[in-house]
Design a protein around this nucleic acid. Structure first.
Lengths: 355, 355
DNA sequence: TTGTATGCGTTATCAG
DNA sequence: CTGATAACGCATACAA
């Protein structure tokens, strides 16, 4: 593989000149530049990234560590990160960190010298101190952390506000007895959504009854299973809020099999707004989480940090608003919403705050 | 940030010794190693990746360039790549290449010196020569390319075989007039699936009628729209094979709205086996493409290449078999298939060949 | 078992 | 405008 030296020799100039050409330095005559470029193309030369970053102390890449690369949510986050990073001429060094809490740390370790900073999603509070350590060396932005970390930028999801808005909506629709199919216990998102559920019921006239809170696990299966308990409740609820869309899907399958009409006999709501949600039968009313936007914001925060001298850096905590998507699974409020088209999502009301 | 020199000085040894410790060299006494490690931990030292790869000419990372990071298919590919790469102690430098054909080349260019090779999905034949150029420098594996490229490993999808198997199945179920909702014209996968469709009809007793081939675009919307044409056909087909699951979803929505029972009046089949497919109403009969496995195989092929001296390298072309997933949307063959559980998929017959 | 010295491919500083 | 040359942080051949 041709190096800068080869090009210099072949073009009859010094390596410094070649370097200048490839860095668009104005300190080189157009004629020389052309000649160098010609030789470079002929020799199929391109600067070696490792050498370059060793010399400049910049790598032009952001490390991204996510707990797991499974599902639409994560793929959307990555897409958002990639899009925004590319727009800023940065690349992405990706790693999933497995569930183990030490994995995140190890992944980040092994990226040293190869990244200018980190965007990470850390499910375990145990990673906290290690992350703080990294943050002393370079900018770190955390995605929806369940614990406070110093010296890191943070983007979280308005789970609480989204859930509260959804339950408020159900109350507005006249429901009083609203069940909740919870997410896995210990999960930050699940916990916040439950808080929002309770808060809305407390504010409104809803039944705040512990027996209405059915266990769930964020998956289709647990949603399916929850229908059984749901239908046994006395008096039977008229609406269910599932902690995420997968749960809602399972729930709707089970209700359909049980001959319970949705939304007629039971309104169903979800959380996430997966791409399939508008196309279910009936289309699912849910809370939209714009995962790609989550990724984009993380990158923007990260860029802000990079462009700021370390001593005057601030560490903003941003909260990604969620949006209520009213579809048919909860009955129509103002007539039946128009049919949504693929790729085009209807508008809605934003829930959440910014800081 | 502490360097190897800092550690050496602090520990009272040479940099060579520190280096040996971090490379698990047996040529260092246990005592010294411990001391070095102690100091390293205290100084929060970790080898600089750029410097290391400059010296060793190995980076420990694979460049991954995909045309677009959207949707479950791509996220699964990435997951497969990541899983397998991590198992082999490799990291992933990710980049989406936009649709532009030069983008792939640029992305790969800018990765030079930072990767040991490339796994790419190149939708445009124009990238062909550039890829061949890369392949002369380091191992390249292509994902499902629509054109022949020299010196590259290749993993493609058994689109033809999968489609043929599906249509054969429909024929077996007694259907004779089977429509096809095509994918976008020019798309490799779409083209191969159509070939499989025609082949099966030719072999069997099906109607090989051009008017049965309805235009589509791989999305929900075009599937929805296709129902109109489908229902107008004279005589009306008893089954439709949609070129992918999204198309099938749209089709099923439209049929449901039109009051056409599935599978009673119209059998519907898809292609891809998206995660939601088993949970539709009725569950969708489709052809499973294991995208994660596609990614894994690409990495394995890549590993094979890396571990082989360049002169004796061969460039295998592997074809990922697809699997027929029989569910209820085409009617049951041997009674109703058992209900599938999330995360557990039923077995099926493999279609495709290996080389 | 340990240390010394050289090279990896660039950038950047300093002279010309 | 151009050219030497010293870093950058590490691995390794060679010496000890």
């Amino acid at each position: 593989m041709a190096t800068i030296k080869d090009v210099a020799r072949e073009a009859g100039v010094s390596v410094a000149t070649v370097s200048r050409v490839f860095n668009n330095s104005p300190l080189v005559s157009e004629m020389t530049a052309e000649a160098v470029l010609e030789v470079a193309t002929r020799l199929d030369y391109w600067p070696n990234g490792a050498a370059r970053s060793l010399s400049t102390r910049r790598t032009g890449t952001i490390g991204v560590v996510l707990p797991d690369l499974y599902g639409e949510f994560f793929s959307e986050i990555i897409r958002g990160i990639d899009t925004e990073a590319r727009a800023g001429k940065y690349q992405i060094l990706l790693s999933s960190s497995h569930a183990a809490e030490s994995a995140l740390v190890k992944a980040a370790q092994s990226m040293r010298g190869r990244i200018d900073g980190l965007i990470a999603m850390a499910p375990h509070a145990g990673s906290s101190n290690a992350l703080g350590e990294f943050a002393r060396h370079f900018p770190v932005v955390l995605l929806n952390p369940g614990f406070p970390v110093e010296n890191c930028g943070v983007v979280s999801i308005a789970n609480f506000e989204g859930a509260r808005a959804m339950v408020r909506h159900l109350l507005e629709m006249g429901h009083r007895r609203i069940a909740l199919v919870k997410g896995p216990s210990g999960n930050v998102d699940a916990e916040e959504r439950r808080r929002g559920y309770r808060e809305a019921l407390k504010e409104g006239e809803g039944d705040l009854d512990p027996s209405l809170e059915i266990p769930g696990d964020f998956d289709q299966e647990s949603g399916y299973a929850s229908a059984d308990l749901l239908l046994r409740l006395q008096p039977r609820p008229t609406a269910v809020f599932a902690a995420n869309d997968w749960t809602a899907f399972g729930l709707m399958s089970a209700l359909s099999e049980a001959g319970v009409r949705v939304p007629g006999e039971m309104a169903v709501a979800g959380f996430d707004d997966m791409s399939i949600a508008p196309f279910l039968n009936p289309p699912l009313t849910t809370v939209r989480v714009d995962a790609a936007e989550l990724g984009k914001r993380a990158v923007r925060l990260w860029f802000d940090a990079v462009r700021t001298p370390p001593e005057s850096r601030i560490f903003p905590r941003e909260i990604l608003p969620t949006t209520l998507k009213v579809r048919r699974s909860c009955g129509a409020r103002n007539g039946t919403p128009e049919r949504e088209r693929a790729g085009r999502r209807g508008t809605g009301t934003e829930n959440g705050r910014r800081e």
